Amino acid sequence: MPRALITGVTGQDGLYLAELLIAKGYEVFGLVRGQNNPRVPRVKQIVPSVRLLDGDLRDLPSLISALDAAQPDEVYNLGAVSFVGMSWQQAELTSEITGIGVLRMLEAIQIHTRNEMGRVRFYQASSSEMFGKVREIPQTEATPFHPRSPYGVAKVFGHFMTVNYRESYGAHACSGILFNHESPRRGHEFVTRKVTRGVARIALGLQDRITLGNLEARRDWGFAGDYVEAMWLMLQQTEPDDYVIATGVTHSVRDLLDVAFHRVGIGDWDRHVVQDPRLFRPAEVDLLVGDASKARSLLGWKPRSEFRSLVETMVDADLAAATREMHSPGRSPDDVVRQAGGAG
C-alpha cells in the first residue's frame, strides 16, 4: 500500500486529493497545526480514514517527526497562506509559510531520507499568481514570472527552491503551476465562493447585495477535483518536472456573476453588486490564462469540467447549504442573516 503525506489537508485541494489517493489504495496522512484546528472535523467527516499528524510549516523538527511517523512514498505540499488579498496585510506570515515553509519541508525530506531524497517524491503547489504582470498570453512553463503580491512572491521562492533541490540533490520534486481552481469546498473569502454563496442567499432573501472589487479581472477557472488528479499524475512520472495546469479559457468576474445570477433566475444583477475600491488589489493581476499542452501531452491530463457547470454546481451547493441553515432546529432566518454578516 503506497503512503502519502499531505500538508494543507484541511483545504479544498487537500480534501479532494485525499479522496483521490484513498480511492487509489493509498494510506493517507494529513499534516495539521494542532488537533484543535477548527477544520479538523471537516477532514474527519469527508475523509475519515486520513491519519492526522501534528506539524507546522514554520517548525522544521515537527516536519521531520511527521515524516518519520508517516514514512511516505509521496509528499504533497499544499499548505500555504493562500488568500492573495490578505497577503499584503500578512506579508511576513505569508512569506514564512508559503515561501520558507517549502524550504523547510524539502530540508525535512532530506534529513528524513538521510540525503537520499529521490526515495520520497515531492509535489509543490505552485501558482499562476507567480506570472502576475504577464509577459505573454497564454502562460506556459517557460513564461517569466513577475509576481504582483506577497503571495505570488512567496510562491516564486517555493517554486525555485523546489527546482534547486531537484537539481542539487536529485530530489524527485515537481511543481504544479495551477491556475485558479474552484469547488463548493472553496473558502468563503475567495471571489468565486463569495459570489456563489452571496447569490444563493440573495435568492433566498437572506441578503440583498454582494460587495466586490475589480469586476474586469480575468482568470482561467477550473474544477479543483480535476486539478488534484494532475498532481498525482506528476508524481507517477519517471522524471520530475514542472507543469502548467489550466483550462486555457479565461472569464471575467462579470462572467462569473452572469452565470451565478442566471442560475437563480436573476438576469439584471447590477442592483445586487456593489464595488468597493478598498477591495481592489494594490497591484492588480488583470489576465491569467494557461497553456496546459505539456500536461496534456506528457501526463495525459485534461480538464473535464467547464466554467458554466462549475459555477452552477457551486451555486446549487450554496443554495442547499443556506436552505439547511434556515430550517435547522432553533434557528430563525435572522440568525442565518447575522451569521452571513448582515446584508452585505
Results as ranks from 00 to 15, higher is better:
Asp13Ile: 00
Leu52Arg: 05
Leu52Lys: 07
Pro61Met: 10
Pro61Glu: 10
Leu63Ala: 01
Ala70Trp: 07
Gly79Thr: 13
Gly79Met: 09
Val81Pro: 04
Val81Asp: 07
Glu96Leu: 07
Thr98Val: 06
Glu107Asn: 00
Glu116Cys: 08
Gly118Thr: 09
Arg119Cys: 03
Arg119Asp: 07
Glu129Ser: 04
Gly132Glu: 01
Lys133Leu: 12
Gln139Ala: 15
Ser149Met: 06
Gly152Met: 13
Val156Tyr: 00
Phe157Thr: 09
Glu167Gly: 14
Ser168Trp: 13
Asn180Cys: 11
Glu182Gly: 11
His188Lys: 13
Lys194Asp: 05
Val195Lys: 12
Arg197Glu: 15
Gly198Ala: 11
Gly198Ile: 03
Val199Leu: 03
Ala200Met: 09
Leu204Ser: 07
Arg209Leu: 03
Gly213Asn: 09
Asn214Glu: 15
Arg218Lys: 15
Glu229Ala: 07
Leu233Cys: 04
Met234Phe: 11
Gln237Phe: 03
Thr238Glu: 15
Ile245Gly: 00
Ile245Leu: 13
Val253Gly: 01
Leu257Gln: 06
Trp269Asn: 04
Pro277Gly: 11
Leu279Phe: 11
Arg281Asn: 06
Asp286Val: 13
Val311Gly: 01
Met314Asn: 14
Met314His: 07
Asp316Met: 10
Asp318Gln: 10
Asp318Thr: 14
Leu319Asn: 05
Ala320Phe: 01
Ala321Cys: 08
Arg324Ala: 12
Arg331Met: 04
Arg331Gln: 14
Gly342Arg: 05
